[in-house]
Amino acid sequence: MKRAEQVTFGGSALNRAAEIRGDEAALAAAMAHPDAACLLLWRGKVLMHGEHFERLSWIMMAHPLIKAGPGGDVAFPIFLGFEDDGAPCFALDISKWEPAGQDLSSVGAFVDRSEQQHPDIAPGHVFVELRRIMTRLSPRDAELLATAKAVMSWHKTHKFCACCGAKSEMVQAGWQRSCPECGGQHFPRTDPVVIMLITHGNSVLMGRSPGWPEGMYSLLAGFVEPGETLEAAVRREVMEEAGVPVGQVSYLASQPWPFPASLMFGCAGEALSRDITIDPVEIEHAMWMTKEEMLQAFAGEHPTVLPARKGAIAHFLLENWLADTLD
């Protein structure tokens, strides 16, 4: 698909400089660089500024918040790479900060429109939910935030060695955890997920999960199992969730999805039947929508269906399907 990397979080050719992650001298020089800066995360939210929170807030390495050391589930700032101008980029989690008198009721909810202002950061630079602002980001900021958020999430849930259970330590500039007891080495994981544009003639298969906002539908999706190809995962997931057999399957595009750490493989599949039998444990409802109905939904004029979330690969695939640009 020629437009594959235009999807949100599609990449920006960031120089990740993996070769210096184990080089203490090079990392120290990067942290001491006069233009070195750090992005901050707090309980999964990201520090942003701008009229519509479209700009990433960078904190210089000399800032007291950085100098104070770990404020979350990481022991030191994670090295992300170098900007095109050579400026080193880092990320730090400060989730131990407890906002006093600020709105925390929706933090972690499916929809979080709250904003948290840290007292040591300039007004207007606030923590916001990444889903809320992801379509406003430049490709570089999107890649940096997706990377930082996914790696931070991994550290939060992988503090102990999977081999012996001992507490592990961050090494390799945050890109590895090492066990001091048994020597086990652990690396950030990415969960492969297939998301399927399943069509039958002029219609596409749409479904919704329990607990989604009213009217929200999307393409079917599911995790790839061990020993499974993408094509097999597409056929299995569609059959499990909607009871629809799928024939030919082709790959379209991928999207890093840092909620918490997945890689979405967008695929196209041809349904062999229109009969739907849902698994109510998997999904709440599924249905076929024609191109005309989907155009109506994208225009916000459908009586019952909302358009797919902007920024998600489902929206990207449906948009290109409607425009006949799945080339």
Results as ranks from 00 to 15, higher is better:
K2T: 15
A4I: 13
F9K: 03
F9M: 07
F9L: 10
G10D: 09
G11I: 14
G11V: 12
L14C: 05
A18H: 10
A28V: 06
D35C: 08
L40H: 03
L40I: 04
G44H: 00
V46Q: 02
L47K: 03
M48S: 03
W58C: 09
A62Y: 00
A62L: 00
L65Q: 02
L65D: 05
K67W: 03
D73K: 00
F79Y: 09
F82V: 07
D84C: 01
A87R: 05
P88K: 02
C89H: 02
I94P: 01
W97A: 11
G101T: 01
Q102L: 07
L104S: 00
S106G: 12
V107E: 06
G108Y: 06
A109W: 06
Q117D: 11
H118D: 09
E129A: 14
L137P: 01
S138A: 14
S153R: 00
T157R: 04
H158G: 09
C161K: 01
C161I: 04
C164F: 12
C164S: 11
C164L: 11
K167E: 12
A173E: 02
Q176E: 12
E181F: 10
P188W: 00
D191P: 00
L197I: 14
T199C: 13
G201S: 10
V204L: 15
L205R: 10
L205C: 12
S218I: 06
F223N: 04
E228D: 03
L230I: 14
V234G: 06
V246R: 08
V249H: 03
S250V: 14
P258N: 01
A261G: 06
L263W: 00
G269A: 12
E270K: 13
D275R: 15
T277L: 10
I278C: 07
P280S: 12
E284A: 15
A286W: 09
A286P: 11
K291R: 15
K291W: 13
E292L: 07
E293M: 13
F298L: 06
L306C: 14
A308I: 04
A312F: 12
I313N: 04
L317P: 03
E319H: 15
L322V: 09
L322K: 08
L322G: 10
